[in-house]
Design a protein around this nucleic acid. Sequence first.
DNA 1: TCTTATACATAAGAAAATTATGTATATATT
DNA 2: AATATATACATAATTTTCTTATGTATAAGA
Lengths: 110, 110
Amino acid sequence: MSNSKLYKGSLTTIILKLLNEHDKMYGYEITQRVKELTKGELKITEGALYPALHKLEAEGLLDVEVAKVDNRLRKYYKLTETGTKETVNKLEELADYIKTMQALVNPKLA
Amino acid sequence: MSNSKLYKGSLTTIILKLLNEHDKMYGYEITQRVKELTKGELKITEGALYPALHKLEAEGLLDVEVAKVDNRLRKYYKLTETGTKETVNKLEELADYIKTMQALVNPKLA
DNA sequence: TCTTATACATAAGAAAATTATGTATATATT
DNA sequence: AATATATACATAATTTTCTTATGTATAAGA
């Protein structure tokens, strides 16, 4: 997302959520899926994505499996058990964040 | 903001929105109001707040007025005209961000 | 042939927070 | 009276997380 600063911090949540739905994805695929789902509003940059994936792997939330398709490298990521649990937490955090922000921005509806 | 990383980037929006409602507030008051409105979920740290206020002032979105109350210093901030316009933009950005995240996290409702 | 798409990666720099300090006055508690 | 907590500002060091720029390599389309 080229756009708002609000996106900061949500990349991990996005990755985990997508992997929770699709079982197994590779980096480039994630960028494309996000572009699709958000109708182009959100463009994950490679400079953000790959380090984030590496970090999640290092933390034990993701497992990697390398594959060669059409003579090109792909790294498939999938959630570990810990990763699945963390996904639940992250999604809760997101829901809380949205609720909190709505309380601030639209206190009448809170 | 002790909590989740999602708050990153939303402090400016919060400040502008509060000033849009309250006409004139000082820093410490903002921290207390946010704590109240979010039932303690969100704690704005001073290390984040004061630099943010100074930046908004430098950008011409806020005006300052120093006062002395009970022998203690207070710096009252209020929106400039530009600040009022920017508040609208920031709130729109927030609404967009929430919509986008919901499309990602809950694609069925999108 | 050249551009775009696919697919990975990292380094430099910027932005925005956290954490740790510091100053100072006022009020509440022991 | 002494101490802790609340009020009110501020900044510096560090960390986190991103953007921008760059690099490598193959495949497909114009």
